[in-house]
Simulated assay, not measured.
Amino acid sequence: MTLHHATVMYGDLPLTLSEAGKGRPVLLLHGGGGPRTVAGLAEHLSRSAHTIAPTHPGWNGTPRPDWLAGIDDLALLYLRMLHERGLTDVLVIGSSMGGWTAAEMAALDTTGIVTGLILINAVGVRIEGAPITDFFALDARAAAEHTLHDPDRFKADLASLSADQVAVQQANMATVRAIAADPYMYDPKLLHRLPRIEVPTLVLWGESDRIVTPAYGAAYAEAFGNARFELIAEAGHLPQIEQPEATFALIDAHLHGEE
């Protein structure tokens, strides 16, 4: 199903949304790599769910107001959007930094709009003994080796990026640095709030991730009040790209209550 793209105003902020499908509402949040990292998942979800996939403010050339200065601001923005649209029983799915945003949303939700979570190789907490790799310190090759199970498989894709596409990626990383780098990729308060989140939570992890390791992911899942941890073989930080069939099957089962 083709997702429809629109820009809607929330206060002073034009928010870009991709949306399609019917059924349970699903809010799909991309990570630092931008909307393209969840595009395939968005298309898949739209076949059986009302899928809403925003472009975070500041990504892909979209405006980011000065007040949006942290992941908690992003989480509150999306909670407001869901409330104003009258949506209920929302499953929030987030990849990497989007997973962090999803967890913050559940922690900040006071109205019960969020009734399920799926975190895919999420950042957002500090785990003793399992530090988050400093992505900004990596060159392109090292970034691929840390992110992907099989970086050579995607070498041609990286080489084919145009100068404009590279510029967009660099601008996206500058936005990541602006809202998520101090402290680096985590909220000091979030880990202590996770036990209070009782909504059914699925934490998915590519077993070859070297940005945030499976040990980090398992500890993240353990901190929730009601979470299950699943490893995905032959995948790194973006299992929805490297192993879409396995990833989508786990997501579908959680979405439709078939676990």
Rank of each mutant, 00 (worst) to 15 (best):
R196G: 15
E84S: 06
V125K: 00
Y186W: 06
L91V: 15
F154I: 10
Y78Q: 10
A137Y: 01
G116A: 04
L190A: 13
V166G: 03
L194P: 01
V199H: 11
L82D: 03
T147K: 04
R177P: 00
I179D: 00
S162L: 05
T115E: 06
S160K: 13
R177H: 12
H146E: 03
F135K: 08
L158P: 08
Y78T: 08
A107K: 02
H146Y: 09
A167D: 02
I113T: 15
H192R: 11
R153Y: 08
E128W: 09
A171R: 15
G94W: 00
T175N: 13
D134N: 15
T110V: 15
Q165L: 13
Y184H: 10
L138A: 07
Q165W: 04
A142K: 09
I197C: 06
V123C: 14
K189G: 13
R85M: 10
D89S: 11
F136I: 09
T201C: 08
A144I: 04
P200K: 10
R193A: 11
L79C: 11
R85K: 13
R80S: 14
F154K: 03
H146T: 14
V168Q: 05
E145Y: 07
A143Q: 12
M105T: 04
G129Y: 04
D109W: 00
V203H: 07
L138W: 08
A122E: 02
E128T: 15
V125E: 00
I127P: 03
T201D: 02
N172M: 05
G86L: 05
E84Q: 13
T101C: 10
G112M: 09
A156H: 10
Q165H: 07
R141Q: 14
G116C: 03
A142S: 13
M81H: 03
V90D: 02
M185I: 10
E198V: 10
E128D: 15
G124E: 03
V90Y: 06
A181Y: 09
S95V: 06
D209C: 09
R85Q: 13
P200R: 12
I179H: 01
E207P: 01
D157C: 01
L79A: 01
Q165N: 09
A106G: 04
A130S: 15
A156R: 11
V203F: 00
R193W: 05
G129K: 04
G129P: 00
E84F: 05
L138Q: 12
